[in-house]
Amino acid sequence: MENGISTITQIIPPNFYLILSSLLFCIGIIGVLIRRNIIVVFMSIELMLNASNLLMVAFSSYRSDGAAQVFVFFSMVVAAAEVAVGLAIIVMIYRNIHSIDIKELSKLKW
């Protein structure tokens, strides 16, 4: 792109992305705290991961630094691996206790 083309980083102040990311992150936290379905809890964790990714991409484009976008790429890689293992664990739990209610999984609780 040539010089002078206005992009979003020149119009929108970076604080807007800060607020949007913290909103998404807090919605994810509320989801983890209030739901009992373990899959929905897992999805809320994905939401929090995405909120932090969004903020990192925003900082990367405001600072014109490509390394942060590579870091977001690695974060997505780790999230994909985490989801594969996590869903395998959920399937195994369901096979053992025939429920995905996190209330049933409180054996480690003190």
Binding site: I8, S60, S61, Q69, A80, L87, V91
Partner: peptide
């Protein structure tokens, strides 16, 4: 949002990896 911030590669990866692979895995397990 990624497209708006000129991070096209991450936008495509986000759609392929998250909306494509991970969410299909979730649906599959459900």
């Amino acid at each position: 949002h990624y497209v708006l911030m000129n991070a096209q590669f991450l936008a495509v990866v986000n759609i392929i990896v998250y909306a494509g692979a991970i969410m299909v895995l979730f649906l599959f397990v459900i």
